Computed example of a mutant assay.
Amino acid sequence: MPTAFLPTPKRRLLTGLIGSGIQKSLSPALHEGEGDAHGLRCQYRLMDLHELAMTPEDLPTLLEAAQLAGFNGVNITHPCKQRVIEYLDALSPEAQALGAVNTVVFESGKRTGHNTDGWGFAQGFRHGLPTADLTHAVQLGAGGAGAAVAHAALNLGMQRLSLFDQDHDRAQALAQRLQGQFPDQQIDAGHHLETTMQSASGLIHATPTGMAAHPGLPLPAEWLRPDHWVAEVVYVPLETELLRAARAQGCATVHGGFMAVYQAARAFELFSGCAPDLGRMLAHFEQLIAAPQTESTHA
């Protein structure tokens, strides 16, 4: 794992998650379970804007309260990943490149923002699709998670990435920003999904479609071919309708659980200074997911 910005290993760990509608998040169990394995007294608290009757405008108050209470840091999820940046002292290279933060580390009175989503996706992709053809991928979704995933795909060596989003302007803006960061690769905002799928080698899905609250497929199953690979970001259910359809067509697939675990593992390392056991965290995640507790693509 990357070692830059890592704090000194600790014996106690107080962290949490700031976001809205996060009561079913798996993050507390994942972080506290890994903390136990390292002999840490780990507590992970949820700061749910909805439950607290707060908005992103209250981020300064929440960050200051967490620092004063002795938190080692906090995770950040929807709708605060971009807004939180203005209240930080420094950004890691990943967070700077993405313009979004999902992890804030408090150390020496400073707040440093990180983004572990892209690293989590890349690790999961390598694990589940080690021989994937990186010639041309279609990505559905250009929001916060989509930006991190797209950046990671290009870092993995994707030669061409075609972005699609219900908000075409958002896809266009992301494509333009990424093109500036990856000038030797082709990034475009697509208009004709069916036609683009015909030339693509794979599909990255980064929208909420497939979650319990948003059932269904993000595109017609017949647009998938046996030589396509499919990478999913949604992790509850672990087998989405898209993954079932893709497997029925003979596609190689990777589920969203890997990204969920690996981004949490990297955040745990940043908070604690301890190297997490990825296999142990994956096994713990599989136990938790057997009795679904969350409907999120987020932390």
Rank of each mutant, 00 (worst) to 15 (best):
G124H: 01
D277G: 12
A100L: 00
S162C: 15
Q67P: 01
A299I: 09
D188I: 04
E194A: 15
C42S: 15
Q263L: 04
C80Q: 04
D48V: 09
S108W: 01
E107K: 06
D58Q: 11
F164K: 01
E51D: 11
F164S: 02
L46G: 10
M158V: 04
L46C: 11
Q23S: 15
H38N: 13
G146K: 01
D167K: 08
S296G: 13
L140D: 02
L30D: 07
Q67E: 15
H127L: 11
A299P: 15
V104P: 00
F125V: 00
G202A: 05
G109L: 04
A97S: 07
A264L: 11
L156D: 05
R225L: 13
Q198A: 15
L217H: 05
R41T: 14
E32M: 10
E286D: 15
N102M: 13
G141K: 02
A213T: 12
F106P: 01
A275L: 14
S199Y: 11
E241C: 03
S25K: 08
E239P: 00
Y44Q: 10
G250Y: 05
G70Y: 09
G21R: 09
T55K: 07
L203D: 00
V101W: 03
P292R: 11
A206Q: 05
A66L: 05
G190N: 01
W119T: 05
P56Y: 02
N72A: 14
D167R: 10
Q179M: 10
M259Q: 04
E295V: 13
H191P: 00
Q287T: 15
S25Y: 07
A265T: 11
Q263V: 09
Q43L: 12
G35Q: 06
P183N: 05
H191K: 08
V236Y: 13
H284G: 08
Q263F: 12
E57D: 14
T294L: 07
A200Q: 01
Q139A: 01
M281S: 11
R170V: 06
L217K: 01
F121K: 00
E222M: 05
G113D: 04
V149W: 00
G146Y: 02
R244G: 07
I76G: 02
A65P: 02
I18K: 01
A260H: 13
K10G: 04
F258G: 09
C42I: 08
M211R: 11
E239Y: 00
H136V: 04
D227R: 11
C42W: 14
L63N: 10
P215D: 06
V84N: 03
M197A: 07
H214F: 10
R12S: 14
A246C: 01
P130C: 06
H38L: 12
T294N: 15
A206L: 06
A152R: 04
H151P: 03
Q185G: 10
E107F: 03
G16S: 06
S108Y: 11
G250R: 10
M197I: 02
V104S: 09
L242H: 05
L288H: 14
E269I: 09
L243V: 09
R280C: 08
I85W: 06
R225G: 12
R83L: 02
A66K: 07
T112I: 07
Q23M: 09
D58W: 12
T240H: 02
I289S: 14
S296D: 12
G113N: 03
S20M: 03
